[in-house]
Design a protein around this nucleic acid. Structure first.
Lengths: 160, 160
DNA sequence: ATAAAATACATGTATATACATGAATTGAAA
DNA sequence: TTTCAATTCATGTATATACATGTATTTTAT
């Protein structure tokens, strides 16, 4: 079932066909959730041609941040955006595609250390070029506005 | 480490253990994704005691918006925040728990119309009381700030 | 030195997302 | 009127999320 009402510019009210919000805070929460979905869709659509999911890309990107050092599963999990991600299973898929290599740690035998392969580096680099271009063309807010957005999002999460 | 100097501004950086962002726009994207995850976790934790998932709650809430009118699956799907949600399957779970009732439409036999049961209304009302309280205590930004956040999020999605 | 607790990871289950396909039905065109 | 296209929904597959549990290993406490 596909409700692909493709939208160039869509306010939240149009997107979720709702105009009744209790207040601006409730609306902002829904808006954050919707925007996250919008962003994920944008990225996933591009990653599809590389045979990667959003989460698989995220793991490759995290590994690249330490390359050529290896990382254990726990190190990767701590850097994931969705912090309940089941990293071993995401690594399963990447290993099948030979984008990463698993081996057990010599220092601590409980740990599994993960290494990017050359194929992993290559696919990460070419997909990143595409993603950067998409971000540049689709997200047109200024650096100043993005900075204000960052401040407000952190304020939203800031329990006082 | 630099953690000492940036303590107040380190929220996202601490959360995903990363300090390297290409620019504020890229950081804002990650911040939106992380905040959405944070919000979902907050809500899911409360809904657990009602045996509901975030998405099941969302479907109940949408149905309540039209109650006592019925809605077909497509109507519900159009109002979902994550617009690729597989609504028939979410309704499966709600039906098992007897929170909604399925019947086929007389007007258009392709359609399945969904009705909230009294149990569905009851669980929605009691869970909403809890969620409202959690929002109130955990999200402390002002209406003015929330409004600014809404404006920036819609600007982020606005391709020009 | 040994037992108990904690850690790291794999794996199992339930649910959701993302997308494809098929069946039934409706609507439009020839 | 008959045929074909579009729609509504259920269902199948792959992957991910959320969480629980089991196993191996390391650390801590007795």
């Amino acid at each position: 079932m596909y409700i692909h009402t493709f939208v160039l510019q869509m306010k939240l009210e149009q997107a979720i066909q709702s105009t009744k919000f209790k207040n601006e805070v409730q609306k902002a929460s829904l808006n954050v959730l919707y925007t996250a979905w919008w962003l994920k869709s944008l990225v996933s659509k591009e990653l599809k041609e590389f045979g990667l999911t959003h989460e698989q890309y995220n793991v490759l990107r995290i590994l690249k941040g330490k390359y050529p050092d290896q990382m254990c599963v726990r190190d990767i999990a701590q850097r994931m955006i969705e912090q309940n991600s089941n990293v071993p299973r995401i690594i399963d898929r990447l290993e099948i595609k030979k984008l990463v290599k698993r081996s057990s740690s010599l220092a601590d035998k409980r740990e599994t250390v993960i290494t990017l392969t050359q194929a992993g580096i290559a696919i990460l680099e070419s997909s990143t070029v595409v993603l950067d271009a998409v971000y540049l063309s689709q997200i047109t807010i200024s650096e100043v506005e993005a900075s204000a957005l960052n401040t407000l999002l952190e304020k939203l999460r800031e329990k006082q």
